[in-house]
């Protein structure tokens, strides 16, 4: 769920479509858009304070099999929340291996690659200091 919450909506939609799964389900809680108050800590380690809110979308559903899935995602994409909840529920049944291979693994690889690329660009801007003159003489 953590992985999918942060994933780009377009990637989730593309991988889900490729899985060609249409599980029957009913809503326990239809997708709703809301906010979460993000907290920080004063001085990074001290008492918490309220930094500001972020939009999130959540939903809960139940498959025919009885498995319950919850979806919590950043932003306002209700369709992504539905797919996340479906994946959460399917991971509890015999489809788990197929969903892991078709959705979670490629998504993790895609996000790792994006993160790596950014970290590489940051590393290229790291300063190497050269000592020009030493003042001991």
């Amino acid at each position: 769920m953590s992985l999918m919450a942060k994933a780009p909506g377009a990637s989730v939609a593309r991988l889900w479509a490729a899985l060609e799964m249409v599980p029957e389900f009913h809503w326990l809680r239809a997708p709703e858009v809301g906010a979460a108050m993000v907290r920080g800590r004063q001085g990074a380690t001290g008492a918490p304070f309220n930094l500001g809110e972020m939009t999130i979308t959540r939903c809960s559903l139940q498959l025919e099999s009885g498995a319950v899935g919850h979806g919590y995602v950043q932003g306002r994409d209700k369709d992504k929340a539905r797919v996340v909840a479906l994946v959460d529920a399917l991971m509890q049944g015999d489809m788990a291996a197929r969903v892991r291979a078709g959705m979670l693994e490629p998504l993790a690889a895609e996000m790792d690659a994006a993160k790596e690329a950014r970290a590489a660009k940051a590393a290229a801007t790291k300063v190497d200091f050269f000592t020009m003159v030493r003042g001991e003489d």
Binding site: A35, A36, V38, R39, G40, R41, L51
Partner: peptide
């Protein structure tokens, strides 16, 4: 508001 985060 659904809740608050754990401090980042």
């Amino acid at each position: 508001r659904f809740g608050h985060s754990v401090p980042v």
